[in-house]
Amino acid sequence: MTEKYKILVKYIKDLSSETPDIETYLYVKEYISKYKLGIDISSKALKNKMIEVNTKLKFEDQEKSKKKSYFEIVYSTIVKIDNPIKDKEELQKIILVDVQNDIYPDLEKSLLDVLHNSGYQNIKFSKKVDFESLYQKRFN
């Protein structure tokens, strides 16, 4: 089977770690287990059969707490589509599943490094993201 795409470049496009003060840090350190990971994927066509895929991870408090930290990373991947793709769904699946499966380990490590370097050493993401399942839920 031939690959339908090739990753040309991947890099951190934007990064944010916000903890406004020490009181917030101490509060968040105690309650960070309640934080949730959110994912947003967008893409735009470039020239020469290339696509920019931006994957945004947000790790944030879902509660209405006044003391909260905010963590976000936008990971940009430039993909070249090798063979003509006739089906829009096939292209969507490449962007939303295949590319994500390829880049997610690096993206997750980058976000965890930010969290650890922000003083939250014991954070791990317990569940691996199943992009295939998310894709199926979205389109079925």
Rank of each mutant, 00 (worst) to 15 (best):
D82S: 03
E108M: 10
E3R: 15
H116E: 15
E108Q: 12
D98S: 14
N122W: 13
K47P: 12
K109W: 14
S17Q: 07
K58I: 00
L26G: 01
S133Y: 10
Y5R: 08
F59G: 04
S65R: 01
H116F: 14
S43Y: 05
T2M: 15
L46W: 12
R138L: 10
D98P: 05
S42Q: 13
N140F: 08
K29E: 13
Q121A: 13
I85M: 12
I22D: 15
Q121C: 08
N101E: 14
R138P: 05
V99T: 15
S33L: 06
K137W: 09
N122G: 14
L57Q: 02
Q100D: 06
I39R: 05
L107F: 03
S126W: 13
L46G: 10
F71P: 05
E23Y: 11
E23K: 09
D61C: 02
K86S: 11
N83W: 11
D130H: 08
F71T: 05
Y11N: 02
K128N: 12
E30M: 05
V114W: 11
V114K: 09
Y75I: 00
I95P: 03
V74G: 06
K80P: 00
Y70G: 03
F59P: 02
D113A: 11
I95T: 02
K137I: 13
K13E: 06
E72C: 07
I41M: 05
I94E: 10
L57A: 02
P105F: 08
G119Y: 03
V9T: 10
E90G: 04
T2E: 15
E60F: 03
E108F: 07
S17L: 05
D61F: 00
S43Q: 04
Y75L: 00
E132M: 11
V28I: 07
E18L: 13
K93P: 09
E23T: 07
K34N: 12
K29G: 06
F71W: 09
D21P: 09
E132F: 08
K66I: 06
V53M: 01
S33I: 10
V79C: 11
Q136R: 15
A45G: 10
P105K: 05
R138N: 12
F59A: 03
V74P: 06
K13V: 02
P105L: 05
S42E: 13
F139H: 12
S69N: 04
K44I: 12
F59D: 01
K109H: 15
K127Y: 00
K86G: 07
K56A: 02
S126G: 13
F125S: 04
K13R: 07
T24W: 06
N101I: 13
I78H: 03
H116W: 15
K86R: 08
D113W: 09
P84H: 06
E30R: 11
E52P: 05
D130N: 14
D98G: 08
Q121R: 12
